[in-house]
Design a binder for these strands. Structure first.
Length: 798
DNA sequence: CTACAACCAGTTTTT
DNA sequence: CTGGTTGTAG
């Protein structure tokens, strides 16, 4: 199933839908049973604008999917006439599954159920030529650049203007341009004040970037939405076509829409005005990437005559959890206001506990999880690890847990994290495929000409670029030409000729329907030497990369050809390896939205980390409120038990930093919180931290006092001594710098792994690594683990 | 011209 | 502590 297959969707819309035959039976449809009054109202209010304010755990997805089932069953619309948009692929997939379950497998896939971005791609492919002008416009085969490509492109543009990249990094420009696109501001529409951003170059670079994208026949994520909107605005006939097609529109997570998405929706909804937006203003957590809570707050004035339906009965959490979350979010201003309630009874209060540092925090949570898993906690019984999640504010917090869980052998999985297709090896392989499919993909060419190393450096690439520019060729053609005219020196020329010739063969095969694309992909990776490159790589992560490449090739099997695969991969590939054995889930709070777990740990509730200092610096009170919503999202993920923890000290940039407990802790209603003070598990350190929490949950002065107390100071000293063993501080004193090593010692180097010291001279060691001999300054290696260091943090009590 | 070791600078959240 | 960039040796 490729995105192209909707070319027949216009026609398919004429075909009858089997479901409609079931319509209008006297009995209420079975799928309506078991809905509460509000949910049922949400399902049955089919016409006109509807705002469905659905609090956490109130059955939002159920209402939404049932509504779609209802539309189909009543014959109000055929599958192809319903537009249903979500933010994530996961959400889209889940909706599809659930609609399928509601209706049996009778319903054909809904072609227009997807993310904003994937739906936009489909629309844009049809009208690509309307982007740009007569001379230079987009073609339907455009490629979608990811963040990495964007940055590299911008770097080139910045360099071309001789701007100091140190002071004005490409990342910043990318953020700026993204922000404009989120607000649907094209270079031409850029307000005077804003075009001077980025040291005066903002407007100019933005225009240059857009032009370059057109030349490359490429778009970025932001363009997908923005181009659709500008097309709709400039071509009423095109807009009308789509407006008429989409008789019913449904939007999930409306509180997270940005301006571009808002305009996109408004334009499409104008004709039929059957738009149903589902959201929760208390869960708006994407302001930093352009989401406008204002969209949901303004819904009623945007769509006059809108019905507002509130889902307030919560089916997920215990009363304590609900009350704690509600108490917290009450501090936010400018809410639409909902009162969540539940029929459920009992349950434990939200637990709160302080720790000395982030390592103690991870240790304690690990033990808690083992206790739950082993059934040693009677209140909740024996639990599967799949029932347990750790939700962090920032991804760097995950490390402490991964380290700890690794050492105690507790299975875990990280949800979210780097996307599969963002990994280096996957992007390299994809670049090979891209170039094989479209030889004019210059970005792909640049990425892989010299991967694996072919002796083609900057100089060679510049020569190729010059050649291509001069003759108006793509880089690949330019490369062939440069070889032909002998523009390149001896060594690189041979390698480059091989490369271009091989690419020519692969291209021919990619176009040849008789050639199996999976085998072709494997052949490309083998013949190019790419697989061999990783096989010869002795670094510790090489095997993992080879595994990823295997997985990539396996994923190809589900597509008809390479083109179809490339089409989907940028938008749809994700990291979910599916349910495996029992594992604790670790993820960011952002990644946790929409999920639920019986037992939830919320570590790192410290001012500066959560709420994040940066968010407050950049957006002030608005930022703080968004952080608070994030906290609300976190607590409301829990079904039975939520545990909030904080640490007095945390390592940042490898330096220890202490912090105060989060101000959000002060805002939790005390009667729904239990402060834990388990007796001396770790001696004084732990006890003091707990006492600290107990004494001062709502008393900031008392907190400061504890930090200044002699006991706390004493702990700090001991802890510092413990956590910063000598070998971790590579200070080279020139007396006998390498003296702490001897010939024969096992050492570890970040890049080369474990090795053996073979020689010592001054401060320089000669070390034998699996990859060969290296001479390395002593400061850059540590004694290999298991050697003298010993100081395992486990067995040293405070 | 390349490859590699040394140095340097910066870290929230992501379709 | 990590990754990306820079300066230098081969």
């Amino acid at each position: 199933m490729s995105d192209f297959d909707d070319s027949d969707a216009f026609e398919a819309a004429a075909a009858p839908v089997p479901l409609s035959q079931r319509a209008m039976s006297a009995r209420p449809a079975p799928y309506l049973e078991g809905l509460n009054a509000a949910q049922r109202a949400a399902v049955e209010a089919l016409d006109g604008p509807v705002l469905l304010l659905a609090g956490a755990g109130t059955g939002k997805t159920r209402a939404l999917t049932t509504r779609i089932a209802h539309l189909l069953t009543l014959g109000r619309a055929r599958p192809g006439q319903i537009l249903a948009v979500t933010f994530t692929n996961k959400a889209a997939r889940e909706m599809k599954d659930r609609i399928g379950r509601l209706l049996g497998e009778m319903v054909e896939g809904m072609p227009w159920l997807g993310t904003f971005h994937s739906v936009s791609v489909k629309i844009l492919r049809r009208h690509a030529e309307l982007v740009g002008d007569a001379e230079l416009h987009l073609k339907p085969s455009f490629t979608i650049l990811d963040t990495d490509d964007q940055i590299r492109l911008m770097k080139q543009l910045i360099a071309a203007e001789n701007i100091d990249e140190k002071r004005w990094p490409a990342r910043q420009l990318a953020g700026l341009i993204d922000g404009w696109k989120n607000r649907c501001i094209t270079p031409a529409r850029l307000p005077k004040g804003e075009e001077r951003a980025f040291d005066g170059w903002g407007g100019k670079l933005y225009a240059a970037y857009q032009r370059r994208l057109l030349e490359l026949n490429a778009v970025d994520f932001g363009d997908l939405l923005m181009h659709c909107v500008t097309i709709f605005q400039a071509h009423p006939d095109v807009l009308r076509q789509w407006q008429e097609r989409f008789r019913y529109i449904l939007v999930d997570e409306y509180q997270d829409t940005n301006v571009a998405q808002y305009m996109w929706l408004r334009l499409l909804a104008q004709a039929h005005r059957n738009i149903c937006c589902v959201g929760d203003d208390d869960q708006s957590i994407y302001g930093w990437r352009g989401a406008e809570v204002g969209n949901i707050l303004r819904f009623e004035s945007d769509f006059p005559g809108a019905q507002v339906i509130r889902l307030e009965q919560n089916y997920r959490s215990t009363p304590h959890i609900l009350a704690a979350a509600s108490g917290l979010i009450a501090s936010n201003k400018g809410r639409l206001g909902k009162t969540l309630w539940t029929d459920a009874e009992g349950g434990e209060p939200v637990r709160l506990i302080g720790h000395w540092d982030s390592e103690a925090e991870a240790r304690w949570i690990g033990e808690e999880i083992e206790a739950f898993h082993g059934g040693h906690r009677h209140s909740v019984g024996r639990r599967s690890l799949n029932d347990i999640a750790i939700l962090v504010r920032a991804s760097h917090q995950m490390r402490a847990f991964e380290d700890r869980f690794m050492t105690i052998g507790l299975p875990y999985r990280v949800i979210g994290g780097p996307r599969f297709y963002e990994r280096q090896e996957i992007r390299d392989a994809m670049a090979y495929f891209r170039l094989a499919v479209s030889p004019t993909d210059d970005l792909a060419f640049e990425r892989i000409v010299n991967v694996p190393k072919r002796g083609l450096g900057d100089k060679a690439v510049q020569t190729i670029q010059a050649e291509a520019r001069e003759r108006g060729l793509s880089l690949l053609e330019g490369a062939a030409s440069a070889v032909a005219v002998g523009a390149l020196g001896g060594k690189g020329a041979g390698a480059l000729r091989q490369f271009t010739q091989a690419m020519g063969r692969w291209h021919a095969d990619a176009l040849d329907a008789r050639v199996n694309h999976v085998e072709l992909a494997e052949r490309i990776l083998d013949e190019s030497g790419y697989t061999a490159m990783w096989q010869n790589d002795k670094s510790p992560d090489a095997p993992g990369r080879l595994d990823n490449l295997k997985e990539l090739v396996k994923a190809l099997e589900e597509f008809e050809n390479l083109q179809g695969f490339l089409e989907h991969v940028a938008l749809v590939m994700d990291n979910d390896k599916g349910e495996q054995a029992e594992q604790v889930s670790i993820m960011t709070l952002h990644a946790a939205k929409g999920l639920e777990y019986p037992i939830v740990f919320l570590p790192g509730w410290e001012d500066g980390l959560f709420p994040s200092q940066r968010s407050m610096d950049e957006s002030g009170m608005k930022g703080l409120e968004e952080e608070r919503r994030l906290a609300y999202v976190g607590i409301t993920r829990a079904e039975e038990l939520a545990t909030i923890t904080f640490a007095g000290n945390r390592r940042m940039y490898g330096q220890w930093q202490s912090s105060l407990p989060s101000r959000f802790i002060d805002e939790l209603p005390e009667e729904h919180v239990e402060v834990l003070t388990p007796p001396g598990l770790y001696g004084g350190g732990y006890g003091a931290a707990a006492a600290f929490a107990a004494s001062s949950m709502h008393d900031r002065a008392a907190k400061a006092d504890v930090y200044n107390s002699p006991g706390w100071k004493r702990m700090q000293e001991r802890s510092t001594a413990r956590t910063q063993p000598v070998h971790r501080t590579p200070v080279i004193i020139d007396a006998e710098p390498a003296a702490r090593f001897a010939v024969g010692d096992r050492v570890f180097h970040q890049k080369f792994g474990n090795g053996t010291v073979m020689g010592i001279a001054e401060d320089t060691l000669t070390v034998e690594f699996p990859t060969g001999f290296k001479t390395i300054k002593a400061g850059y290696v540590q004694p290999a683990s298991g050697a003298s260091s010993g100081a395992s943090t486990d067995d040293v009590p405070f």
